[in-house]
């Protein structure tokens, strides 16, 4: 375990040092960004809409019952912006894109494509890891902004059509404006930026250290997704604590 952590820290450091080379890899970054956005956007919309809706359903009747209907919009807005959108989207992207990264790099490792790169003096971190990390670090925060907006819309619609809540869309957004500050959205986006690095580093590391054949690739994909999710939840706690101050 400690060896893995050490290797991941080293990979993170090497990628950071390679950041000035991003412009040279811009085509690969754009391809990866398209892959992340194109593959995930519809799923992000559907998930976010229903997360916002469920949040309104769970909290709305309780608050309305106690005469606190003016807090429904703010509560849904803050919960989505600060916590649910960043964490849920990070988990979604870990499953969708982190697994793809680990599988792709894992198969390249198993089929000696990475060795071939090394024999040509091409650094796999520059050629393979950097574009993926930059793309996910840009893509995930963008998806989270999208998710927050769609989630708010989902919450507003559900609040307006549910009899026990019965708050109009306009009233919901007026309450939301009162309850949510720009800082809440920025915090959520910042958290998603950190999660993106976690997913990228964990998945690329698993891919690059794959051993064995197809079974090894499968193992790497599973570990990439599970480890990413565990680290996302752990870091979520510490980042939330940090951002509270």
């Amino acid at each position: 375990m400690f060896q893995n952590i050490g290797e991941m820290v080293l990979l993170f450091w090497r990628t950071l040092r390679a950041l000035p080379l991003t412009w040279r890899q811009r085509q690969k970054v754009a391809d990866q960004l398209f892959e992340i956005g194109n593959a995930s956007l519809l799923m992000v919309c559907v998930l976010s809409f229903f997360i916002g809706g469920v949040l309104a359903l769970q909290t709305g009747p309780v608050l309305v019952e106690r005469g606190l209907h003016q807090y429904v919009g703010g509560l849904v807005g803050v919960a989505l912006a600060r916590e649910l959108a960043p964490v849920m989207m990070a988990i979604l992207i870990a499953g969708r894109c982190g697994s793809a990264m680990a599988a792709e790099l894992g198969s390249m490792r198993v089929y000696q494509e990475i060795d071939a790169l090394r024999t040509m003096n091409i650094n796999p971190v520059h050629f393979l890891v950097l574009p993926r990390l930059v793309a996910i670090a840009l893509g995930l925060p963008m998806l989270v902004v999208f998710s927050i907006l769609v989630g708010w819309l989902g919450g507003a619609l559900v609040a307006s059509i549910t009899n026990q809540i019965d708050i109009s869309v306009q009233a919901f957004f007026a309450d939301l404006r009162n309850g949510v500050e720009l800082k809440d959205v920025v915090n959520g986006v910042f958290k998603s930026f950190c999660f993106a690095w976690i997913i990228g580093i964990v998945s690329c590391h698993q891919g690059l250290t794959t051993i064995g054949g197809p079974r090894g690739i499968g193992r790497s994909v599973t570990k990439a997704v599970v480890n990413s999710i565990v680290l996302i939840i752990l870091f979520d706690f510490f980042l939330t604590r940090l951002l509270l101050d």
């Binding site: 000696q112 494509e113 060795d115 071939a116 024999t119």
Partner: peptide, 12 residues
């Protein structure tokens, strides 16, 4: 130095 790998190792 160049190496021709057993599988070719072309980038797919």
């Amino acid at each position: 130095l160049a190496m021709v790998f057993q599988s070719g190792a072309l980038l797919n």
